Measured scan of single mutants.
Amino acid sequence: PKDEAKKKVKEAIKRGDEETAKRIAKKYNLDWDDAKREADEER
């Protein structure tokens, strides 16, 4: 599900692992900028 994928993307971003985050986002066709902004807001 997309929500689960987005959570994984945000967790990867918070760990500083943007490569993984981008790969997950691409795989699930998520909006990378959107997920990154959300992760930054939660930090």
Rank of each mutant, 00 (worst) to 15 (best):
D40M: 12
E41M: 13
N29I: 02
D17V: 01
L30N: 00
E18Q: 07
K10A: 10
K22Q: 07
E42V: 06
E19F: 10
K10F: 14
E11H: 05
A35E: 08
E18R: 05
E4F: 14
N29D: 09
D34Y: 05
K36S: 06
G16Y: 03
A5F: 09
K27V: 09
A25G: 00
E19G: 06
E42D: 10
T20H: 08
N29A: 09
E42Y: 07
A25T: 02
N29W: 03
R37I: 06
E18G: 03
D34S: 10
P1L: 14
K6L: 15
K27M: 15
E4A: 12
D3R: 08
D33C: 13
L30P: 00
D17H: 05
K7P: 02
K2N: 12
G16D: 03
E42P: 07
I24T: 02
A35H: 03
R15Q: 08
E19T: 10
I13W: 07
A39H: 06
E18F: 15
V9P: 00
K6F: 15
K22H: 06
A12W: 10
A35K: 02
K26P: 01
A21V: 00
I13H: 01
K7R: 14
R23H: 08
K22N: 02
D17M: 04
A12G: 01
E42N: 07
R23S: 09
D31P: 06
E11L: 09
N29L: 05
I24Q: 01
K8P: 01
L30W: 04
W32D: 01
K7M: 12
R37V: 06
A12Y: 14
A39R: 03
K8D: 05
R43W: 13
E4G: 07
R43Q: 14
D3Q: 11
D40E: 13
K26F: 11
D31R: 02
K7F: 11
D17A: 03
Y28W: 09
R15S: 07
K26G: 04
K27L: 15
D40T: 10
A12P: 00
A35C: 15
D31V: 05
K2R: 14
D31H: 04
K36T: 06
D33N: 10
K14S: 09
D3G: 09
R43G: 12
T20P: 01
A35F: 14
A21R: 00
E19Y: 10
G16A: 03
A5C: 07
R15V: 05
K2F: 14
E41F: 11
E38L: 07
A39I: 10
K27E: 15
K22A: 04
K26R: 12
K2Y: 14
D31F: 03
Y28E: 07
E42W: 07
K27R: 12
L30D: 00
A5Q: 06
E4N: 09
A35I: 15
D3T: 11
E38N: 05
A25L: 02
G16H: 03
K7C: 14
L30K: 00
E19W: 11
R37Y: 06
G16N: 04
I13A: 02
A39Q: 04
Y28C: 04
R37Q: 08
E38R: 03
E11Y: 05
R43N: 12
K6R: 14
K26M: 13
A35V: 15
T20C: 13
R23A: 14
D33L: 10
K27Q: 14
D33K: 06
E18D: 08
K6H: 07
K36F: 09
K14V: 07
D3E: 13
V9H: 01
R43H: 10
D3I: 11
K6M: 15
N29P: 02
K7E: 11
R37S: 07
